[in-house]
Design a protein around this nucleic acid. Structure first.
Lengths: 245, 245
DNA sequence: GACAAATTCAAACATGTGTTTGAAACTGTT
DNA sequence: AACAGTTTCAAACACATGTTTGAATTTGTC
C-alpha cells in the first residue's frame, strides 16, 4: 500500500512514471521497503551518507537497484526516511517516561541519565542508530535539522526545566544551561566518541551492567555540584553522596 | 625541496613517473603544496573525506588536478598529510604547558580546561580543525587512529594522572577513569556538537570571554565532585565553591 | 646560456555513481 | 480468465570521480 504518493514533501518534479493513482489501495509486498530501510540504516551508519552507495544497500536488502528509486524517489528520500524512522524508534521513550514520573527531581535526573545510557549498550536500538546520530551531530544535514527541532529540542527543554528545578533557577538562566550541558556532555561522550574511547580504554565494554555503573557515576558526579549551588538548604547532611560510592 | 620521496609510508608501488632522485635538493616552489594542504583542510572539513573532491580542492588552491597526485601520491595521501599537519598545529600546546606547571592539581585542572576551550573560540586554530576531528571521533579512519596514539593518548594519560592525584586514587583506577571522562565529556561537547548546540541555544556565541566563563563553570562543576570523594580532608571549608559563583 | 631535474598543465582514461527506462512478473478484483 | 494497477528486473544512461599521461614550463646549477 501507500507507495509513491507518500512523497508529500516539497518534491515538485513528477512523482512516478506512469499512473500515480492509488485509490483501490491494492495489496503490495511492502517487504522490500522494510528491507531497504533496514539495510540503508546499516550502510549509512557504516559508510556515511556520501560514501554509502545505493547499490550496496540494495544488494544487502536483496532488492534491485531501481527499488530505492521506486520506493523512495532517490537516495536522499531514502536517507530522510531512515532518519524519520529512527526518530520513531528512538530510545527517548525511556527518557520521556523518566521525565514524567513524580519523584524528587534529583531522582528523576538519575533515571533520565540511566535511560539514555541504557540505549547505548549492546544492540538495544539497532546499534547503527547512534553512529548516524554521531555523524549528524558534527555535520548536520537538512533532514537532521528538522528532526532536531521535532524530537531533540523538546527533550532538551525539559532537561533545562528539571535541572533548573534542582538548582532553583529558571530554565532560561545561563547557569542552568551550563549545568545542563555539563550533564549532556558526559552522556554524549559515550554516544559520540565511542570508538575513540574504546581505543583509549581497551578494557571498556559497553555491557548493560557497565552502562548502569557509568550512569550512576554521571548522576553522582553531576549532583555534587547541583546540590552545592542550590540556595537555601546548606549541604543536606543525611545522604552526602548518593548511592554507590 | 623534499618532494615525492616524502612518501616513506608503506607505499610499495612506484613512487613517481620518471626519475626519483633528490640529491641536489634543488629549489622548488613548495607553495602549491602549502596551498593544497590549506584548501584540502577546509574542503575535507566542509564535505567530509568521501564527498570532498580533489577537483574542488585544487580549484580552491589554484592548482592543477594532477598536483595532488604529484605532491601527495593520491587523495588518501593528501588527507593523511592534512591530519599530520593538524597534529602539529593542534592547540594542545597550551594544555601541555598547563600540565607541566607546578601548582595545586586543582588549579592545574582548571588551567587545562581553559587551555582546551580557548582553542575552540573564534578561529584560533583554523576552525575546520575541529570539524575534521569531530568526524574522526565518531568514525575514525586508519590515518586518525595513528594520530590518536601519537598525540591524544599521552595527553589522556596525563589527565588520568592529574585527576587521580586530585581524588587520591591511582591513574588506572576505574573511578579515576570515569571522572576523567566526565571532565572530557563536558569539554568535548563544545568541540564535537558545536553546530547542534548553537542551534538549540541560539544565544550562544563562542567568544573568548564566553569560552572562559564556560571553562570556569566546567572546572567548578567537576571539582565539586572530585573534592567530595577525596579521602581524608573532609570538605575544606575555606573556599567551598571556587571562584565565580 | 645550456643542461637536467622539478614542477605544472590540459587532456584523456577508467571506473563507479545515482538515476532512468521499458518490459516482464506479480497481485487482487471483476 | 481477463484485466488494471503494482512491483520487480536487467540493462542502459548521463555524469562526476580519482587517477594517469606526455608534453610544456619553470627552476637551479654548472
Amino acid at each position: 500500500m501507500c507507495l509513491k504518493l507518500l512523497f508529500d514533501m516539497k518534491t515538485g518534479t513528477r512523482l512516478v512514471r506512469k499512473s500515480q493513482r492509488s485509490p483501490a489501495a491494492p495489496a503490495a509486498s511492502d517487504a522490500t521497503r522494510e528491507k531497504l530501510l533496514e539495510a540503508a540504516g546499516r550502510v549509512f551508519a557504516d559508510r556515511g551518507y556520501e560514501a554509502a552507495t545505493v547499490r550496496e544497500i540494495c544488494r544487502r536488502a536483496g532488492a534491485n537497484v531501481a527499488a530505492v528509486n521506486y520506493h523512495f524517489r532517490d537516495k536522499q528520500g531514502l536517507y530522510a526516511q531512515v532518519l524519520a524512522r529512527m526518530a520513531g524508534e528512538a530510545r527517548i521513550e525511556g527518557m520521556r517516561v523518566a521525565l514524567d514520573q513524580s519523584a524528587p527531581p534529583e531522582e528523576i535526573l538519575r533515571r533520565v541519565i540511566k535511560a539514555r545510557l541504557q540505549g547505548l549498550g549492546a544492540h538495544r536500538p539497532p546499534d547503527w542508530h547512534f553512529r548516524i546520530v554521531a555523524r549528524e551531530f558534527s555535520h548536520p544535514t537538512p533532514a537532521m535539522s528538522r528532526m532536531i527541532d521535532k524530537v531533540s529540542r523538546p527533550l532538551y527543554e525539559r532537561m533545562l526545566d528539571l535541572i533548573g528545578q534542582i538548582i532553583g533557577l529558571p530554565a532560561d538562566n545561563e547557569k542552568t544551561r551550563l549545568c545542563t550541558y555539563s550533564v549532556m556532555g558526559q552522556i554524549f561522550l559515550y554516544a559520540l566518541a565511542g570508538p575513540i574511547l574504546m581505543k583509549l580504554w581497551s578494557g571498556m565494554k559497553m555491557t548493560p551492567e557497565q552502562m548502569d555503573r557509568i550512569a550512576d557515576h554521571i548522576a553522582d558526579f553531576s549532583l555534587a555540584y547541583l546540590r552545592e549551588i542550590r540556595p537555601g538548604q546548606r549541604q543536606t547532611l543525611p545522604v552526602f553522596s548518593t548511592r554507590r560510592s
